[in-house]
Every structure is written in structure tokens, then in C-alpha cells.
């Protein structure tokens, strides 16, 4: 054994078994040491430090004649992410814009009637952003049509929504209109907006379900409870798997209750709880049912 190999063995022993570097190897450790030596000994041609991980080995290098240099290709791959520009996702941008808008409104530096806010506000109807609930976004949208009465502003907003991005946001604007008018007990206005939303929803089951829900609520609010129950039941049966289905079921109970049929309302609520026990609407139904039973 050469002197270098001997000193290597000695150092390896010291590291492996915590024995002094000068100690003689123990016979039973010889196989381990020879394994280590085999592992660390490489052919003179191999230069592992200069070859990127995953690159072709020496055999491939020999066969890689031609136009494409496989090493350069590997390097190209490694550095390609550096060509891509960072991007702020749409959602984060909208959140930031909404915050900016609200801050500007509160410090008086923004003109709420500036039409440049409309795209931001209309998106906030569909995908609520922080600190800007959809109803507030709708009211702010109306404010971008200044100098006219509320009815004309709503009409202009609808016209703008029908034009903007090929009418992509029209249904959402109409649903918001229906919701906001419902909240101020303008049943007829809410109903008209819901019907327009239903007409504009086309073949989308989700949008149709939401439009029917709003229509049912508006009808019930206006005292036309039988019609409301009919519209809501029909929608429930047509799209039982829609995301609005639990709310529609609850709205049926509300319409029945408003029509004075407490027994039917209780039964509808019980069915909702039975069929969708884990749904958040079921919790609301439980509370209403509890109140109903207390009254009785």
C-alpha cells in the first residue's frame, strides 16, 4: 500500500470509528475501507465538479457530435427561468387596486365618479375583494354615472355592462341590482332585474340558478308567495346540484313562511337539514326551525 493510501485509510478510520488517525486498521473494517476507496477513486478523466448535475456522462459526451452541444443545452435549461418576468397575479392586483380605491375615497384623493374604476368594481361583484363587499361595489359602480337619477344610472350601468368585455359581467351586474333593490324593499325593481338576469344567463346552470333564486325572493317579497315557491321549486328540481341549491331550498321555506304556511316551511327546513346536514345553510335552517317551534 502506498503512503498516500495508508494515510487515507488512517484518516477514514479516524472519521468513521473515532479512533486516533495513527492507529492500525482493524481487520474487520478492511472491507468497509476498500469500499470507501472504490467509491472515492474516479478515473482521471472524470471532472465531477465541472459537470452540471444531470448532464451526460463521459460516454454521452463522446457520442454528442453534431450541431447541438448537450452541455450548452443543459445550461440553457438551467438558466431559462431567468428569462421570465415576475408577475403579480390578477387577484392580488385587484385586491391592491380595491385597497387603493378605498383609501383614495376615504382621503378624498379619488374621484368616485371616475369611469376608470368601473372594471375594478365590476370584477369585485364577481370575486369579492378585501374590504369591498359586492353591494358596496355595486353602489360605487352606480356612482361612476354621476348627474342622473338612480334609475337612469342603473340603466346606463346595464348598457355599459352589456358592452364591456362582450357582456361578460352583465348577469353579475343584474344580479347585484336585484340584490341591492331587494335590500331596500324595491320588490318590483328587484324582480325586473332578476328576470333580466335570467334572460341574460343563457345556458349557464349556475347563473340561471342564481337568477331564479333572486326572482323567487323578489316575488316572495312582493307578496306573490305562491309564484315564488313555484319558481324556486322548479329551479331546485332542474338544477339540484347547483351551488345555489341550498339557498334556494331555504328561500322556498322563507317564501312559504311569508305566505303563512308555517307547516310547509317547517317541513322544507327539515328536509334541507336532513339532505344537507353539513352545509352552512343547514345551520341557518336549524335556527329558523328552532324559532318556529318555539313560537308554536
Amino acid at each position: 500500500m502506498s503512503r498516500t493510501a495508508a494515510s487515507f485509510r488512517s484518516a477514514a478510520l479516524a472519521a468513521l470509528f473515532c479512533v486516533p488517525a495513527s492507529a492500525e486498521p482493524l481487520p474487520e473494517t478492511d472491507f468497509l475501507l476498500s469500499k470507501i476507496e472504490r467509491t472515492v477513486t474516479r478515473p482521471a478523466t472524470c471532472a465531477p465538479c465541472t459537470v452540471p448535475a444531470g448532464m451526460p456522462d463521459d460516454a454521452d459526451r463522446g457520442s454528442a457530435a453534431g450541431d447541438v452541444n448537450p452541455y450548452l443545452e443543459k445550461i440553457r435549461e438551467a438558466v431559462s427561468p431567468a428569462r421570465r418576468a415576475p408577475i403579480v397575479p390578477e387577484k392580488a392586483k385587484n385586491d391592491a387596486l380595491a385597497k387603493l380605491f378605498l383609501a383614495s375615497l376615504s382621503d378624498g384623493s379619488a374621484d368616485p365618479s371616475d369611469p376608470r374604476w368601473r372594471p375594478l368594481l365590476v370584477r369585485a361583484l364577481e370575486k369579492p375583494v378585501r374590504d369591498l363587499p359586492p353591494d358596496d361595489a355595486y353602489r360605487l359602480l352606480l356612482a361612476t354615472f354621476p348627474g342622473v337619477d338612480a334609475g337612469t344610472a342603473r340603466k346606463r350601468l346595464r348598457e355599459w355592462a352589456a358592452e364591456c368585455e362582450g357582456g361578460l359581467h352583465l348577469v353579475e351586474v343584474l344580479l347585484s341590482e336585484s340584490r341591492v333593490l331587494f335590500s331596500v324593499r324595491n320588490w318590483e325593481g328587484s324582480l325586473a332585474a332578476a328576470e333580466a338576469a335570467a334572460a341574460a344567463a343563457g345556458n349557464s346552470p349556475e347563473l340561471s340558478a342564481r337568477a331564479a333564486y333572486r326572482k323567487g325572493l323578489a316575488l316572495a317579497g312582493a307578496g306573490r308567495t305562491t309564484e315564488a315557491v313555484c319558481v324556486l321549486r322548479s329551479e331546485r328540481d332542474e338544477h339540484p346540484e347547483s351551488r345555489a341549491a341550498p339557498e334556494i331550498e331555504y328561500a322556498i321555506a322563507w317564501a312559504e313562511l311569508r305566505g303563512g304556511d308555517e307547516k310547509a316551511a317547517a317541513e322544507t327546513l327539515r328536509r334541507l337539514i336532513r339532505e344537507r346536514p353539513a352545509d352552512p345553510v343547514a345551520e341557518k335552517a336549524r335556527q329558523t326551525l328552532g324559532d318556529l317551534e318555539d313560537v308554536r
Binding site: 418576468a85 408577475i87 403579480v88 392586483k93 387596486l97 387603493l100 380605491f101 383614495s104 384623493s109 379619488a110
Partner: peptide
């Protein structure tokens, strides 16, 4: 926005960073 006293340039900046280029 603080520099300009309005949100126009701030909004343009947010457009700039979110635009796929």
C-alpha cells in the same frame, strides 16, 4: 398615490406588474 395625491399612476403601476408581457 402619496406622491401624486391621486391613484392614477398607482393603478397604472399595478397594471404594469400584473400584465403578462
Amino acid at each position: 398615490k402619496a406622491e401624486d395625491g391621486n391613484a392614477a399612476r398607482a393603478a397604472s403601476f399595478l397594471e404594469f406588474v400584473s400584465e403578462p408581457l
